[in-house]
């Protein structure tokens, strides 16, 4: 235990720097990925068969490709030279869009058909019905699972070490490779991840309870 503590004292600057990169990466990926997920969700609920089929295939490819492979494809596949951080940002945003589209679609679908019908009977356009009735309620229902996904996305940033982004896992690995203190450093990294994720899931639980009360 003391050994782990000593390693923490020696390397905490570098490790906390890594954690900060992880958090920034997750934030950026969600910032771009969540709106894209909403667009895909609306497309996947479209009544036009061709459009819907195309979107569903895009979503399934996005969901079927492991994040690790997505990172490699974006990093090595884009002919323009981009920094690892930007590549990781793009790859994780793509994964986010595909996954959250399914979560959001589930939310949109749980809006009762009678309300949509009422909107149409009142003469509201399909766009108005979507904007005023379906999306506000669907997103609200999707909030807890979306928050759960955000936590998973934060964890997925750990894969960015593979394309040399200096996030937490990458920092822990590089220190461990120099000092051979593998156990200590991965325990520390694990604790840092757990502090963020466990507190985030406690918040999610509270939000879920609060939303349930209001419905």
């Amino acid at each position: 235990m003391t050994e782990i503590w000593n390693d923490w004292l020696t390397h905490h600057d570098q490790l906390l720097g890594g954690l900060w990169v992880s958090l920034r990466l997750a934030f950026m990926a969600l910032l771009l990925g969540l709106p894209a997920g909403l667009v895909l969700a609306v497309g996947a609920s479209s009544r036009r068969r061709v459009l819907r089929g195309f979107i569903v295939v895009v979503i399934e490819i996005g969901r079927g490709t492991p994040a690790l492979v997505m990172l490699q494809v974006v990093y090595n596949g884009i002919p323009v030279t981009l920094t690892g951080f930007v590549c990781a940002y793009i790859a994780l945003a793509l994964t986010t869009a595909a996954y959250t589209s399914e979560i959001i679609r589930g939310g949109l679908q749980s809006v009762p058909g009678g309300e949509i019908e009422a909107g149409r009977a009142l003469g509201m356009s399909s766009f108005d019905v979507l904007r005023d009735i379906v999306i506000p309620q669907g997103l609200r229902i999707a909030i807890p699972p979306l928050m759960g996904f955000c936590i998973l996305m934060f964890q997925a940033t750990s894969l960015a070490f593979i394309i040399a982004v200096p996030e937490l896992t990458s920092q822990a690995r590089s220190i461990a490779n120099n000092t051979f203190h593998y156990l200590n450093l991965f325990v520390i990294a694990g604790v840092l991840y757990a502090i963020v994720t466990v507190s985030a899931s406690l918040v999610t639980e509270q939000v879920e309870k609060k939303l349930q009360r209001h419905v």
């Binding site: 964890q155 750990s158 070490f161 896992t169 156990l183 991965f186 325990v187 694990g190 899931s201």
Partner: peptide
């Protein structure tokens, strides 16, 4: 709460 990759490294290298 801890990413799978950390568990892999921890068990393999630790």
């Amino acid at each position: 709460g801890v990413p799978l990759i950390i568990w892999l490294f921890l068990i393999y290298n630790g």
